[in-house]
Simulated scan of single mutants.
Amino acid sequence: MRRTVRVMVVEDDEDLRVAVSAELRSAGLDVDSTADIAGADSALRHGHYDCVVFDRMLPDGDAIDYVHVRRQHGWGVPVLFLTARDSVADRLAGFAHGGDDYLVKPFSVAEMTARVHTLCRRAGSGRPSVLRHADLEVDCARREARRAGVLLTLSDKEFAVLEHLIVRAEQAVARAELIEHCWDAAADPMSNVVDVVVKRLRRKLREPELIHTVRGRGYRLAAADHGP
């Protein structure tokens, strides 16, 4: 029997809270919601959640301060911050205070749902937020990737594809699987969007090649090409 995946949405804008909650429920998640930090704190101390979606500026404070305090006491539930504050300093503050992801308003509800699913999978798998393979390092929480210690400048799609490949390192990953996990439902599975992103990734990762084509199956992240 599949485990219920529970998400808490903390947003004081009622229309947005209802819309976000409805979208997450339609994606198969069990959703509770509240309008302030006090309500969230009560729910989080009495129930288990796989992810929390926090608006930053709430009637009773900035959510990053609440998350920061909870993190200092060992709280490990993944957090996605939603906010209109879009400066680099604001995003870095969100990560520094314990956020796992940060989405600026206005945002695509489909993208928000995909990010929540990723955080929930991470919580359920117990895998670390920093993944390494050969000289590649992918920090899933900060959404940063480094090759031989050098920070790579990646688009959201490039990062999503690289993250999925490193999670499945040394395994062949089909194009259809990459589309399912890295694109929204409107993506055409017969298009060449995956090949285009992989081509850009290969260029940015430089030599020696890490992403190998597995003929008739898809792609594999490996330190060396060991054949099909």
Results as ranks from 00 to 15, higher is better:
H133K: 03
L154H: 05
L154S: 07
A148Q: 08
R132L: 00
L152Q: 10
E137A: 09
L131F: 03
H117P: 02
E137S: 09
L119K: 00
D135M: 04
T153E: 12
P128L: 06
L131R: 10
S108C: 07
H117T: 14
L119W: 01
D139I: 02
D139T: 10
R127I: 04
L152N: 06
G124D: 02
C120F: 05
H133S: 10
T113D: 04
G149E: 12
L152S: 08
S125L: 11
L151T: 06
V130G: 08
L136P: 07
S129P: 03
T153G: 11
E144F: 00
V116Q: 02
V150F: 01
E111V: 12
D139V: 07
E137C: 04
R122F: 11
A145D: 02
E111R: 10
L151F: 01
A141G: 06
R132K: 14
R132F: 01
M112R: 04
L136Q: 06
E137M: 08
V109P: 13
R122C: 00
A114P: 00
C140V: 13
R121D: 14
V138T: 11
R143Y: 01
V150K: 08
A123N: 13
H117W: 04
G126P: 06
S125R: 15
S108T: 04
C140S: 09
R147V: 14
R142I: 11
S125I: 07
R142H: 13
R147K: 12
R115M: 05
T153F: 00
L151R: 14
A145C: 09
V138F: 07
V130E: 14
S125C: 02
E144K: 11
A123Y: 07
G126I: 02
R142A: 15
T153L: 06
R127S: 08
A148G: 12
R115G: 09
L136W: 09
R121H: 08
M112H: 01
S129A: 13
R143S: 11
V109R: 15
